[in-house]
Amino acid sequence: MANVELALKEATTVIEGAIGAALVDYTSGMALGTLGGGKDLDLTVAAAGNTDVVRAKVRTMEMLGLNDEIEDILITLGSQYHLIRLLRSRGSQGLFLYLALDKQRANLAMARHQLKKIEAELEV
């Protein structure tokens, strides 16, 4: 079991092409932890903005009557991948992991697999 700092460190070092990672509480839009990003990617802004993305998808699913849950969300940019993975273990509902990847260096299938593993081992 890994804590928040460890999980973010693993996400940004083990996953090839990682630019930055954050653990976000989407009930408030605030980050529980951020790592990387730098001046080109403000992870606080990303946390607040992607909270709206997750909320919009949750609402859409409710409106469609889909009795299901979101596992992850992939956003493909020209030069980056943004991966959002919702935490599903008991006691960590309402949180998501956010990972920004450099499209040139990243292996999407591997990144998704590794993020799933990090999420499973994360204890908040």
Partner: peptide
């Protein structure tokens, strides 16, 4: 409310 966005 999205407090993160509220702050920003």
């Amino acid at each position: 409310a999205n407090v993160g966005r509220l702050h920003l």
